[in-house]
Amino acid sequence: MEKNMDFTDVVTKRHSVRDFKDQPVTQKDLTELIKLAQRAPSWVNSQPWKVYVATGKTLQNIKDTYVQRNSEKGNPDFPVMHRDDWSSETQINMKQWRHEIVHHFENFDEAHEKMSGASTNLYHSPAIIFLTIPKGSSLWSVFDAGSFAQTLMLASKDKGLDTIPTYTSVRFPDVIRQAMEIPDDETLVIGISIDYPKDATINTYQSKREPVENILKFKD
């Protein structure tokens, strides 16, 4: 892994990468990153997260099964809301994101092909980190898992690695549970693909953020 970056650069340069090299990260390096992520905050230090890392034949079997079941409707542990049912503010951001993606490529067909192909093949990453929380824990554990995930992704960027957290990777939880031997009393939260990025157009896109004045309010 590479040397440390300036913290501001870590935050601003972290973005979702959708096509990875076949250059596996070592177990030692992944362990170091996960150990750093353990510094994330959690309610009353509950540390509800568990971490499962799929690589090699195990991950390839997962990918093969996902390709075979690609036409099926997903059934993730967390319910999925149709985008049309989201709040109007979030829909504006999502529509802008889709518009930018299309214009990042030559045309809509290319954008659809590249984005769909990447998703179907779980972004060709040689490692996916799956996070779970206990089914019997507080809903606040979802926030804790998010803090862990963000800390992990920033720590990865700091070491020269890129990531993408995806719904796609957990849309068939039965596949992941069997492959990773995850107990039934754990909720599968998210999968995070991680590795070194390919030099590809799909990886040069970085989504915009709302002007801070649109989301910030001070009151003295």
Rank of each mutant, 00 (worst) to 15 (best):
S141T: 04
D199L: 06
I190R: 01
K13M: 08
N214I: 05
K57N: 13
K159A: 11
A54K: 04
V175C: 12
E113Q: 13
K135D: 07
A54C: 13
D158Q: 10
T168M: 15
G191A: 10
K13V: 02
K157E: 06
D185Y: 01
G56R: 03
K13H: 07
R18A: 04
V17Q: 00
A179S: 10
K198S: 15
K35Y: 15
G56H: 10
K13S: 12
I164K: 01
P211L: 10
K21L: 12
K217I: 14
L122M: 15
D195P: 13
D19M: 14
R209D: 08
E106P: 01
E110R: 02
D6M: 11
D77Y: 06
S42C: 03
F7K: 10
E72K: 02
S88K: 05
L161E: 03
Y66D: 05
E89D: 13
P134Y: 00
Q91F: 08
P79Y: 11
S125M: 10
L161M: 08
Y205R: 00
N214R: 02
F108Y: 11
H82L: 15
T163H: 02
N203D: 07
K159V: 13
D84G: 12
Y205P: 00
A179Y: 07
L188T: 03
M81L: 15
G56V: 15
L122Q: 10
D185N: 10
H99A: 12
N121C: 14
F108P: 01
F143W: 01
S193Y: 02
D84E: 13
K63P: 06
D220M: 10
T65H: 02
S88L: 09
S125L: 10
E213D: 15
A54N: 05
A127Q: 00
G146D: 04
Q23E: 10
L122S: 11
I215H: 05
M5Q: 15
H15T: 07
P165V: 11
M94T: 06
L30I: 07
I190E: 09
M1G: 15
W140E: 03
S207E: 08
A40Q: 04
K219E: 13
K21N: 09
I190G: 01
Q23L: 11
Q91N: 09
P79T: 12
H104F: 03
Q178A: 11
T26S: 12
A37L: 06
S156A: 14
P24F: 04
D220H: 13
I129P: 00
E181S: 14
V67G: 01
H104G: 11
V25I: 13
S87D: 14
D22N: 12
T55K: 03
Y52T: 00
S169K: 01
D77I: 05
V175S: 05
T187Q: 05
R69D: 12
T168Y: 09
R98K: 07
V175K: 02
K73D: 07
I202G: 01
K217M: 11
L216S: 05
M5W: 13
H112I: 04
F20H: 04
S207Y: 05
P79F: 15
F105H: 05
W140Y: 04
W86S: 13
T65D: 10
N75D: 14
S42L: 05
Q60H: 08
T132S: 01
K3N: 12
F148V: 03
P24R: 00
